[in-house]
Design a protein around this nucleic acid. Structure first.
Lengths: 133, 133
DNA sequence: GCAAATTAATGATTTATTCAAG
DNA sequence: CTTGAATAAATCATTAATTTGC
């Protein structure tokens, strides 16, 4: 329940929700109503990097900055960025939750991990000298 | 391709060239002199079918079951199955991502504005509205 | 046809993340 | 803030495909 209004209000009003020129939509007559934002690979890369570097729940100001930056790659609005972070957080959590569930439904993956680790440790015998790493 | 001789003492010296580990069976009859596991076509078929039918990240128990099942076709260990699913996931993702990139082929504009830390500063407005972390 | 040389696939390891429990 | 558990990403290393010269 975050207030998204200030994020979107500061933007230039151009193409607020119209689908005049979509990226790759086939303009074959039938105008698709649902023209939702589709991030380009560059935009995704940027967003993931920002997320990784610590921005998990961006403030309104950060959203404005990120949006401005992403616009170099293509059309994007503040609410897209806001929703992206929201969805990304949720999906990361889902992933973690799913792996917890699968952990409980059997004897824990740790067995497998242990098996692999034991292999590895038996391998490490030949641990080279002076492994500065 | 890689030198088998002691290639100088390279810093990292990834010298895990031999197959001293996992020498499962010398196999007097069949020339099983391979080091790493090589799935048979039947095993691959089974694995792909399982993957397609929804098993993406198998639990330890599932790995055991699948391994037992695949063993009807030839030698296989749990870690092989584990690695197979890991690699398959990763490489399916790669493929998917590559498709997306080639699909987009956006016209890589030059970046005029730089990083986010170029803080716009003028936008201080009332960003206190939401974004409580 | 056939191996040596080269390239493409892919199995196995290491490294960097993630969320959340302590 | 630190650590546990489990990847996914990146990388290494080996095997199969294939190319090439004979």
């Amino acid at each position: 329940m975050y207030a998204v209004v200030p994020v979107m209000s500061d933007e230039q009003g151009r193409s607020s929700s119209g689908c005049f020129y979509s990226d790759k939509q086939p303009a074959a007559g039938a105008p698709r109503r649902s023209c939702r934002w589709n991030p380009t690979p560059e935009q995704i890369k940027d967003l993931e990097e920002l997320y990784r570097s610590g921005i998990k729940t961006p403030t309104a100001q950060q959203i404005r900055q990120v949006t401005a930056r992403l616009r170099n790659y293509g059309r994007v609005e503040g609410k897209n960025v806001f929703y992206w972070f929201q969805n990304h957080r949720a999906r990361e959590r889902q992933k973690r939750r799913r792996e917890l569930i699968s952990m409980h439904q059997s004897d824990t993956k740790q067995q497998q991990q242990t098996l692999i680790n034991s292999k590895i440790t038996s391998l490490q015998k030949k641990e080279s000298a002076g492994g500065t790493n």
